[in-house]
Design a protein around this nucleic acid. Sequence first.
DNA 1: GACTTTGGTTACTCTCGCGTAACCTTACGC
DNA 2: GCGTAAGGTTACGCGAGAGTAACCAAAGTC
Lengths: 216, 216
Amino acid sequence: MLARVSTTPSFKRLPRAVREQQMLDAAVKVFSRRGFHAASMDEIAEDAGISKPMVYAYLGSKEELFVACLHREGTRMMEAIAGAAAPDLPADERLWRGLRAFFGFVGAHRDGWAVLYRQARGEQPFAGELAIMRGRLVEVVAGMLDHALRAEGREVGPTDLEVVAYALVGATESLADWLADHPEADPEKTATRMMNVAWLGAAQLVHGVTWRPPAD
Amino acid sequence: MLARVSTTPSFKRLPRAVREQQMLDAAVKVFSRRGFHAASMDEIAEDAGISKPMVYAYLGSKEELFVACLHREGTRMMEAIAGAAAPDLPADERLWRGLRAFFGFVGAHRDGWAVLYRQARGEQPFAGELAIMRGRLVEVVAGMLDHALRAEGREVGPTDLEVVAYALVGATESLADWLADHPEADPEKTATRMMNVAWLGAAQLVHGVTWRPPAD
DNA sequence: GACTTTGGTTACTCTCGCGTAACCTTACGC
DNA sequence: GCGTAAGGTTACGCGAGAGTAACCAAAGTC
């Protein structure tokens, strides 16, 4: 004993870009399993096969690390959706493709994105970050609705539009949660169900059918 | 100086039941403002006008305290809804009354319930607690839908029913968030908007209008 | 008016985990 | 082949905040 002065060089010493991705992979995994607070930097570092100071050197504080996860995963998701829903298609087709892409993504990352997202909704430092992403989605959906409405020669106040879009996005998020909690469920089928709720409701609105509260 | 041996007796020494409510009030306030983790027991105690050991004596650990908040506020909300939506009304009327009561409640507790709820969705120890409450709501909504469907001589698989109900509940939660973030918004109007999305979509489903994915 | 229960306090302890200082070592430019 | 930057490590400081021990006093109770 006492030999092995130079520790097994195995194959270490990877370039920064690679290590960063490994760290993010580990971070997403650990944050998802444990939650932001219960997750320890030590565990993330260990899971990434690296020591803690490296994580700090590359990705900064725990909060920054979490935000980085959110960003990477969020961007991937947004790209998946944007890549599927071409802007020159009719509204229902766009909606359908967007939903399918979204649920496909969530289904494929069942214990990554969805869980991270859930975390972030509550914690104040991240809620803002999330609100921005959700805001972009809401804007897109609201734009679609507006487009469809104008095609019918109709028009609705911007707040109404925003709120309806917000509700649709909320319903979709909710089903994403549901999907994440039901490993056996089919993403495609979930997307279809969501489409039923969203589009049939939205279509009514587009055609000017409106529900009004009873006179009491 | 050195006098004031007996500290101002002011009017202290309240019965347990009263103090517990004060503590819960303070806890809801602080948890909402700071979030579960950032909230300190010291601050809650101070805000309740009492010292920390009393909080531990009456409500137990920090987690238990949070759960107690969730329970109290959740029960209040459920009661508000249940009291409004009589079970012998037609489905749309029940839905409308339930939504109105719900948004009324959220609007009246803008920085209490909604924020607490948001917190709890993410944190693992509480997510279960919440899931149970949401589950009850989903069940009620699903039951309503089922009832309406059967009245039309139609029937849908239980999973479909559950998922649609889940989506509606999710959309509603989402608008509750929106309402909590928009102090100027009118709860009644928000309920109407939700009703538009939920009911017009649901009504289509009830009448057997179903959207199907394009053949591709 | 003693005695016990209930409401209340001050002043700690102790853990946990973020963040860092100080220190190696392999690769690469030149 | 030699300097230096880039990749990597061990081992620790230390702040914060949950939870507690020990102790005090008013209000019932008999």
